[in-house]
Simulated assay, not measured.
Amino acid sequence: MLLGIPLLLAATALRPRFARLPENKPVLLRADAPALFALVDEIAQVAGTRGVHAIAVDTEINASVMPYGLRGRRLLTLGLPLWEILTPRQRVALLGHELGHYGNGDVRHAAVVHTALRSLTTWRYVFAPVPQPTGIEILVNVVYIVPGLLVQGLLMLLDQLTLRAAQRAEYLADREAAHAGSSEAAVGLMDRMLVVDSAEILLRREVNALAMSGPRSAREAEHRADELWERLTAHMASIPEHEYERRRRAGSLRGHSVDATHPPTHLRRARLLADVPRDAAVAPDDDRDRRIAGELAAARTAVARRLIRDGLDG
């Protein structure tokens, strides 16, 4: 029993960590956004998988679907800056891509591998050496060397074993994006991904301008937070075609790393153009798009205010 107690404690500490619903960002359930969930369900059916149980909205220029909880429910995370710069058709393609990872059996999105990657990443953080250690922290760093190396080795091994499958899964998910939103929308999504850094620069510039204008202007800006999205959309619409072409050529000249989980955007775009053109399996619906915009209105304002506050605090 004396030996069993520390083993039980170790097993408890090393148990798989399951994600939870985020507490620091708006989370929508079906009752909050029926039109958006209906769209996700329709796209999931096209991709050959099930829908999601919750939708979180945050400040990232990204989107993802991940399992959470012991029952493996799914959480879709929409980055509002990315969502705002896409057309309705491109948004369908984006959702088709994210759900396509599950419809195509992406090994990194499978419950066992995803949980293992998440747990190992958490433990790598736990065993990271304390920077500028003092006193007892020096001893802690020494004790953490061996378990830290073991965790890092396991994480690198699992990463390498699933690397090729992850790269292939991106191309398959792009195919689902074209299936759901049309080939044209999927190619347009790739073009937008080429210039997302421009959106990030614009957001940072707007927040810096508010910081320099004084606290009163910043407080007023929080009440007009939605204007941030209007300026972002106008900025992205002003990017000329030759800039997209320059980015594609730069990506081609730069090449890519063989150990990258995502293939270069210009290669993914070329793959879409090489396939037989597809029409949208999810029919356009202007009324649905307006209802979705209404459902996201509160989160849209909250995220804009969060961007302004974080920028001013930073």
Rank of each mutant, 00 (worst) to 15 (best):
291 R>V: 03
194 L>S: 02
47 A>R: 13
278 R>T: 06
286 D>G: 00
162 T>Y: 08
52 V>S: 14
137 E>A: 14
79 G>K: 04
105 G>K: 09
239 I>C: 12
223 H>E: 12
163 L>N: 11
285 D>W: 12
41 D>F: 13
182 S>M: 02
32 D>M: 09
74 R>A: 11
156 M>K: 07
187 V>H: 07
127 F>E: 08
279 D>C: 01
160 Q>K: 10
291 R>L: 07
176 E>I: 00
68 Y>S: 07
250 A>R: 09
147 P>K: 06
263 P>A: 13
249 R>M: 14
303 V>G: 09
105 G>S: 13
256 H>Q: 01
147 P>E: 09
254 R>N: 03
72 G>S: 09
90 Q>P: 02
81 P>V: 08
194 L>V: 00
299 A>V: 12
104 N>D: 14
26 P>W: 03
119 S>G: 06
217 S>E: 04
208 N>I: 00
169 A>T: 11
86 L>G: 08
124 R>H: 13
271 R>P: 00
41 D>K: 05
101 H>Q: 09
123 W>E: 12
96 G>L: 06
244 Y>P: 12
285 D>Y: 05
219 R>S: 09
107 V>T: 11
300 R>L: 00
164 R>D: 12
249 R>T: 15
109 H>G: 08
55 I>A: 10
53 H>R: 11
242 H>K: 14
38 A>H: 04
178 A>N: 01
155 L>P: 00
266 H>N: 00
151 V>P: 05
79 G>Q: 05
163 L>P: 14
189 L>I: 13
313 D>I: 06
105 G>P: 06
157 L>R: 15
65 V>P: 04
263 P>N: 02
182 S>P: 03
58 D>C: 03
272 L>T: 08
268 R>T: 04
306 R>G: 13
98 E>A: 10
289 D>V: 00
291 R>D: 01
200 E>D: 10
275 D>Y: 05
220 E>C: 09
263 P>V: 00
208 N>E: 08
53 H>S: 12
175 R>T: 12
30 R>S: 12
89 R>N: 05
16 P>S: 12
76 L>E: 13
203 L>N: 13
205 R>V: 06
93 A>E: 11
11 A>P: 13
199 A>N: 01
119 S>K: 06
35 A>R: 08
164 R>P: 13
192 R>L: 11
100 G>V: 12
167 Q>C: 10
165 A>E: 10
100 G>C: 04
250 A>V: 01
261 T>G: 03
220 E>M: 07
141 N>C: 02
40 V>I: 14
232 L>A: 11
38 A>F: 05
231 R>Q: 09
190 M>H: 03
262 H>W: 08
180 A>K: 03
18 F>W: 12
84 E>S: 07
264 P>N: 02
222 E>V: 05
119 S>F: 04
248 R>D: 02
79 G>D: 10
272 L>D: 06
88 P>I: 11
258 V>T: 09
191 D>W: 03
250 A>N: 04
182 S>L: 02
156 M>Q: 11
44 A>N: 02
262 H>P: 09
201 I>C: 00
72 G>P: 15
261 T>Y: 04
231 R>V: 00
255 G>D: 05
135 G>P: 04
64 S>K: 03
159 D>T: 13
31 A>I: 04
222 E>T: 09
224 R>H: 15
121 T>E: 15
214 G>N: 10
52 V>L: 02
91 R>S: 07
243 E>G: 00
165 A>S: 01
52 V>G: 14
312 L>H: 04
78 L>A: 03
